[in-house]
Design a protein around this nucleic acid. Sequence first.
RNA 1: GGAGAGGUGGCUGAGUGGUCUAAAGCGACUGACUCGAAAUCAGUUGUGCCAAUUUUGGCACCGGGGGUUCGAAUCCUCUCCUCUCCGCCA
Length: 425
Amino acid sequence: MLDIKKIRDNPQLVKDGIKKKGVSPEIIDEILEIDKKRRALIAEVEQLKAKNNKVSDEIAKMKKEGKDTTKIITEMKEVTNKIKQLDADLQQIESNLNSKLLYIPNIPHESVPVGKDETANIEIRKWGEKPQFKFKPKPHWEIAEYLDILDNERAAKITGTRFTLYKGLGAQLERALINFMLDIQTKENGYTEVFPPILVNRDSMTNTGQLPKFENDLFETKDPDFFLIPTAEVPVTNIHKDEILKEKDLPIYYTAYTPCFRKEAGAYSKDIKGIVRMHQFNKVELVKFVHPDTSYEELEKLVNNAESILQKLNLHYRVVLLCSGDMSFASSKTYDIEVWHPGAERYWETSSCSNFEDFQARRARIKFRDKNNKVNFVHTLNGSGLATSRLLPAIIENYQTENMEVIIPEPLRPYMGGIDIIKKK
RNA sequence: GGAGAGGUGGCUGAGUGGUCUAAAGCGACUGACUCGAAAUCAGUUGUGCCAAUUUUGGCACCGGGGGUUCGAAUCCUCUCCUCUCCGCCA
């Protein structure tokens, strides 16, 4: 959510900002018009309330002195009725204003390239090199089927399309990756591990920006009404909802493994091969609550923390700075980390690291008290550290052998009971 | 799922229709005393919105929504959460 005061004081800046994100700027004029009405109404109704409060005190005194109050009470009834009516009007205007504000995206940071879609993204750096094979590397779904470690067909029997069943050493490798990543993020990078609820309420989903605009992308439950999280960002960011944190406690770093659930409505059908785009996938997430002055430094560190996993696994990747039009609704600046899949012959996003500045904090009312006792919004950041539905295929494809076996990367072997290769049974 | 109790400031906790501008204590902060600390003493101590911004004034907030009343922390109603007991259960 953007600050209504900022919109009021600097409408052109906000208009330019949302335009870069592909949202048409007329909405800002509507918002300002509603805000104007709202403030006029507040002035009117509060004046009446002040009178009401004053006279109520007088009535109390009169009663104590035994004076007759019937006349003044009759008069006040009219005032009260007027207040009720104005309050109802005000409530309607405020909910209208609020629902409009909830649809306004965050505006991009000045360092973000302006562009419409992914073609305007900028490659920042590459790490490692594409592995060379003496044979033609196969895509992960062929190897996984041969080794019988992933089974989409049986998962479809259980649930439906875009689900997978991890089997045997495949299941074990998934679990190893999760544990490995959590250990790195907690032991080396200073994150505190949490394991949050994966069903959340509407408020939490609104605070991080998935709602109200993207309800179609989410799975929800009936009775009670909850949503399945599309990312651990949602429950973890909401840990500090409605809190005023101490400045000395910042920055706060959390990491969490959760399954994630996405409808992937409208996603390209060509992506359904293998497990790169599932309705359910596993992810280790990194979330930060930081002082506003440090959030862009913290973003760089966050990206480095995510990269460190790929480096340890010796997987070639590139870091991409997203352009304004390719960024998510709530983000001010986003880097994607894309890992090389030699079988599929393409890079796949395996992490997305964003600074939301105070966009989410304002919605979730997450603040801190500074040295001068002033209360201010924190900045929130998050990034995948990493998503296993893209990482496990990358390992299968990068570590495949000519006879379709998969070598386990050395750092994962302790998590696999010492197993160093996946062979056909 | 059933029965009961309860939700008040950073924390403990009083307040059951009208100086509540929410008692008191603890904690925190500031100052005094001190070489310094402790103890002691004095003072300060929430959030949001509106208007002006030099001092400030007004409104709202006692889990949340709605209602009764001239007036609600207090009464009614719905709802959420916590605790205790029973039932069920990984």
